[in-house]
Design a protein around this nucleic acid. Structure first.
Lengths: 337, 337
DNA sequence: ATGAAAGCGCTAACAG
DNA sequence: CTGTTAGCGCTTTCAT
């Protein structure tokens, strides 16, 4: 690989001059010299070594993203938005995934920081708050994505999960349902989970429907615990007439659970799910879900980060909240009982 | 951020010694000095700057991957495998996506090379062959993923697409079908497309079924051209009794096309699709598809690359071919006519 | 056993 | 206008 020195020699000039033309600082340079240099660059097919540039400039023009599960289609859509915005602004992207493990998250952050990425987008497990506070103190740029943290005043992009849940459950209530169950993953301190449960409860309360804890099923993220939960729900003496599922995988597990006990969605029990994809309308039955603007979330978080990296001084954190959208299809019917 | 110099000063030693302990070269070092240094490292919470290391060592411990469409769930599963293998071997990962655009692919390769990634995994558009040949000459490490190129002798991971297609079509033939259509994207010179078409043709030939060009539908990757193609197929005077779809999105479009003309899968027409996901069994109807080992493809390609990067000398290229697996469900029935 | 010094490839202040 | 010089933070000879 040719270096700037090779180019300088070939053109018979100093490397500063080469650096100048490459960086566009040639206002005061003779046409002749400029052309000589350009010619040498061309002939050697010279490309500046970004690592050396980074070391000098103390900026890698690269950002990092840490997500919980890279194979989740929701996140790949987010990633597409991140990608787009990175490319548009000339940034590279390093991606890593935490698998919801706080320790792995910590390691990823450290590795990426050592690699000197200029900023970080994090879908945090919510458990490394002291580290985040430290980053904050160092004025290191990062933005939270999808999960909001109350204690930390930093840029965040979230979607209004209370709204999404509330509207879905309201929709079910409008159809005449009163016994509405919900399935969710352990709340821990993850805002989407907290908020979707909150939205569910708010919708019920506002319609004077008492909250029945038996109808709130916390499922494990492993094994097919959504199927079990669904079956348990359906074998209740006073079984629910509708289910609100708060996650893609749970949507599918409910569908399977209902099927396995020989019941039918939506005839025997209605289902409102979360997250939308091209295949959701083609499920049996076409599922009503709340769609999240995944692409925009990624793009917006990236824009926010790049913006923040440009400033020097501390600025007050920006919280961007996007709205979800209900996709009404045919998985919900008025209760049959 | 503390540097190696800060640590050296604090410990009252030279930076060479600090470097030594950090890199494990302390066989001949006094315990005392070693502990002094470790203490200073601890106190300053020192982490080596990877950029400086990279410049010196001429290795970034980072690889790059360029894929066609990052939001395609197939690729996110691949990415997961890549991730896993990278983490396991201490490599960072930069990802970019070409959107099937050869020019973008070219730019991505150049950018990543400038960033000095140690190697590249590429799901190539198949159109920058001169560049790849050049990389080959420079002994730059890269491996092709999913798409094979005959002209280029380089490491490649593919899945046996001829086999996948042939077995699916054979399955349809075994059910009694004779008029079997197929939908695919423009072949260009992309091996999976070529091979799936080839497998389709081989299955027919081996069963003495004449190939009817009217039953081979090339669809555009944009707009919903799969729907249109399906409708055209079904309005043929002698319409096909089964369809073999060669791509996830096309699977869905066929399903919609059939539905839109008021027909039913599998009663009126059978469908065998490509690619498998957790939601495929829950479609209406549960779709028979050929499943590709996406995760393994990613992991294997990464392992291959890392292996290649370690060697200095040219070694003969390794072609790893993985087998797909048929998932038989209920979208195929014997022909009703 | 440890330190001094050179240098990876680049940019930018300074000098002229 | 252009070249010289001094680093960026690290590793690695080469001395001692």
């Amino acid at each position: 690989m040719a270096t700037i020195n090779d180019v300088a020699k070939r053109a018979g000039v100093s490397k500063s001059s080469v650096s100048r033309v490459l960086n566009g600082n040639f206002e005061y340079m003779s046409e002749e010299m400029k052309n000589k240099i350009l010619k040498a660059v061309e002939e050697l097919n010279y490309r500046p070594n970004s690592v050396a540039q980074s070391l000098k400039k103390k900026s890698t023009q690269t950002i990092g993203i840490i997500i919980s599960d890279i194979s989740n289609p929701f996140w790949s859509e987010v990633l597409k938005g991140v990608q787009y915005e990175c490319t548009r602004s000339g940034y590279g992207l390093m991606v890593s995934s935490s698998g919801e493990d706080a320790k792995v998250e910590l390691e990823n952050i450290i590795t990426l920081k050592n690699k000197q990425v200029d900023g970080l987008i994090i879908n945090t497990t919510g458990r490394n708050m002291d580290l985040f506070n430290q980053l904050e103190d160092e004025m290191y740029s990062f933005v939270f994505l999808d999960r909001f943290n109350d204690d930390l005043k930093t840029d965040t992009v979230i979607v209004n999960n209370i709204l999404g849940a509330k509207q879905s459950v309201q929709y079910l209530i409008d159809q005449g349902h009163k016994r509405i169950a919900t399935l969710l993953y352990p709340v821990e301190n993850k805002s989407p989970r907290i908020d979707r449960l909150e939205g569910y409860k708010q919708a019920l309360s506002e319609n004077n429907i008492p909250i029945d804890e038996d109808l709130i099923k916390i499922c494990s993220q492993k094994s097919e615990s959504g199927i079990k939960a669904t079956k348990a729900l359906l074998s209740l003496p006073n079984r629910p007439t509708a289910i609100f599922s708060t996650n893609t995988l749970l949507n599918l597990e409910v569908l399977r659970g209902v099927r396995e006990v020989g019941l039918n969605v939506p005839k025997d029990v209605s289902l409102f799910g979360y997250d939308d994809y091209p295949w959701v309308p083609l499920l049996d039955p076409p599922l009503s879900t709340v769609a999240q603007p995944a692409y925009q979330m990624g793009a917006k978080a990236t824009a926010l980060l790049i913006n923040r990296m440009k400033r020097k001084r501390k600025t007050k954190p920006r919280i961007v909240q996007l709205d979800p959208e209900l996709k009404i299809r045919s998985s919900c019917l008025p209760p049959s009982i």
